[in-house]
Amino acid sequence: MSYRDVFGEILADHYESPRNFGKIDHPTKVEQGYNPLCGDQVAVSVLVKDAESACPMIDQCSFEGEGCSICLASASMMTELVKGHSREEALQLIEAFRQKMQGAENVPGLPSDTSEEDLVALYGIRRFPVRIKCALLAWTTLKKALDA
């Protein structure tokens, strides 16, 4: 039995090769996220274009940090997903993902369970209730960065 057998290729791949891992130049905001229960720690950076306009856009998003495989793979997927979206869309996505992970079904605005999007691989983490907060850490951190 391997990690891939249980958690799937997609999660393993994002854990092994996290996307957008590192710093971005001249970020608009860097927010720290910390899970005091398990010590997971991520820093999420965003570069927001047209920040003063009616529709600010996320130009770049990256993360750094230490954490378990679920925390890091989730952060990696998130940075891929929000890039190129408006701030508003990103906030909606974050909220939708939070609801999904906390048990809601058929959440609008999220890939469906049968979709081929990477994010679907994280839905399986709902089987491990204590790990849901690992999957949410980067997302709540990005929300803080965008809210501020």
Binding site: M1, S2, Y3, E16, S17, F21, E116
Partner: peptide, 26 residues
């Protein structure tokens, strides 16, 4: 002992600038 086999992995971070192509489920 088994955990080491289970978690064996090669970390190869991808740079931020890399194109973000979508990949299907393997």
């Amino acid at each position: 002992k088994d955990s080491q086999v289970f978690f064996a992995r090669k970390v190869k971070p991808t740079p931020i600038t890399q194109a973000q192509g979508k990949r299907g489920i393997v």
